[in-house]
C-alpha cells in the first residue's frame, strides 16, 4: 500500500514579477500541508517569494513516444527564431 500521501508539484517564484518555475514535488494530504511542506523543503535557502502547489494528478503530460511527432518538426524552422532582426541600438533584448 502506498502510505506516502498524495503527490503535489511545486512551483516557486524567485522574485515578484518573474515566472513560477517547477522546483520538484512533495507528498501531502491537503492543500495547507502541501504548501507548508513545499515551503519547508524548497525555500529553506531564500529561493522564493511565492509558491504554487498543484495536485500532480491534474497535470497532463505529453507522451515520450509522441516526442518525434510533436517536437522534431520544429527543428528545421530556423526562421521562427527572431534572429533575422537587426537589434535596435541600445536595446538589451527584444
Amino acid at each position: 500500500m502506498d502510505t506516502q500521501l498524495d503527490l503535489w508539484e511545486v512551483f516557486i517564484q524567485s522574485k515578484a514579477g518573474s515566472h513560477h518555475v517547477h522546483a520538484g514535488s512533495v507528498h501531502a494530504s491537503d492543500e495547507a500541508m502541501a504548501l507548508q511542506n513545499a515551503r519547508d523543503i524548497y525555500t529553506r535557502r531564500n529561493e522564493g517569494s511565492s509558491l504554487w502547489v498543484v495536485p500532480a494528478k491534474y497535470i497532463t503530460a505529453s507522451s515520450s513516444a509522441d516526442a518525434d511527432m510533436l517536437f522534431d518538426p520544429a527543428n528545421d524552422k530556423i526562421y521562427r527564431h527572431p534572429t533575422f532582426y537587426i537589434m535596435p541600438e541600445g536595446a538589451k533584448q527584444i
Partner: peptide, 11 residues
C-alpha cells in the same frame, strides 16, 4: 513520519 515532516521539524 514522512520525509517532508522530518524536514519541517528540523527546520
Amino acid at each position: 513520519p514522512i520525509l517532508e515532516e522530518d524536514l519541517a521539524l528540523t527546520n
